Simulated scan of single mutants.
Amino acid sequence: MKILLTNDDGVYAPGLAAMEAQLRHLGEVFVAAPATEQSGVGHSITFLTPLVCKRVMRQDRSAAWAVEGSPADSVKLAIAELCPWRPDLVVSGINNGLNAGINVLYSGTVAAAIEGAFFGVTSCAVSLEYDPDADFQAAAVVARNVIGGIVDRPAASGGLFNINIPTAATLRSAEVRVVPMGLAHYGDRYEKRQDPGGRDYYWAVWNAPEKPPQDGTDVTELREGRVTVTPLQFDLTRRQLAADMQDWNLRS
């Protein structure tokens, strides 16, 4: 199997190195990742400036391509130009922090997997619950096992999958649940501050949802210490509403 590996934490991130070591049990791995951390950039693409990249050697003396752009840039450039072969699988991660619930919409990690799926390649985003002492090695073993189970299924071909691993799953065996993403709205508050020059600025403040998250979603299953897998799609069309709107007789 030919595997393209990327992330949004940067080409030197420990989660990337741990994932690469485990993916080598599944096949040949080519690494192309952002040169610097790109967390929260979503699906941004570089259009207005040149996209610079270079081959680098990391601490373990393994080679990778460092891309001066976003995670989606890294996948697009790798598949179009850098990879010596077309990948059978794209993996993005391991991200240092979960990408569950509505965070999926902001995540550079997930966006890189979406870009792979754009190309018709089976793609998986992998994220680990944030911990200053996160065990990426154990998380990579979990991720490899889950990814191996996904790619063995013909129905997964060309699909897009979001995998989240709680800290508890790196300490002991954990169940894997296939669940939808949570849709609870949160994180809409800002704290107003002033800099030394007296200018106002705003700092985003995380706040819990006003309503408890719905049971049976990635958010709630992760709280119970279970690994979650969510099959995603990038087609945003509300097809039933589009069909109903044919009778609206809209005019310009």
Rank of each mutant, 00 (worst) to 15 (best):
N164H: 07
F47Y: 14
G108P: 13
R144Q: 13
S107G: 14
V146L: 04
L82N: 07
D8N: 12
R238I: 07
T170R: 00
V110C: 14
V11E: 08
V90F: 01
R58K: 13
Y130R: 06
D244A: 09
A242D: 14
V11F: 07
G158D: 11
K211R: 11
V219E: 05
K54F: 03
N99K: 13
V179L: 07
I150D: 09
L98M: 12
R172H: 08
A117T: 14
I114A: 15
A143N: 04
L128G: 08
P231F: 04
I45H: 11
K76H: 13
V179G: 09
D188S: 05
P50V: 10
Q233E: 15
E224V: 00
V179F: 11
A243C: 09
V142E: 01
G15L: 05
H25W: 09
V67T: 09
C124A: 15
V227H: 05
P84A: 04
L232W: 13
K192I: 11
G97I: 00
G149N: 12
F136I: 00
T217H: 03
I147F: 06
G101N: 09
Q59V: 12
S107E: 15
G101E: 05
Y201F: 14
R189W: 04
F161D: 13
A139H: 10
R223Q: 12
L171V: 04
D244W: 12
G27D: 12
Q233M: 11
A64K: 02
V126C: 06
A243Y: 14
A140L: 04
N162P: 14
M1H: 08
T36D: 11
A64M: 05
S252A: 09
A242S: 14
W248F: 10
I94E: 02
R153Y: 08
G216A: 06
C83W: 03
T230M: 01
V151R: 05
R172L: 00
I165P: 07
D60M: 04
L183I: 02
S157W: 10
W206E: 13
G101H: 06
G42H: 05
V219G: 00
A63K: 07
V56D: 02
W85I: 00
C124D: 13
I94W: 00
D235K: 04
R251F: 01
V227T: 02
R153I: 05
A33H: 08
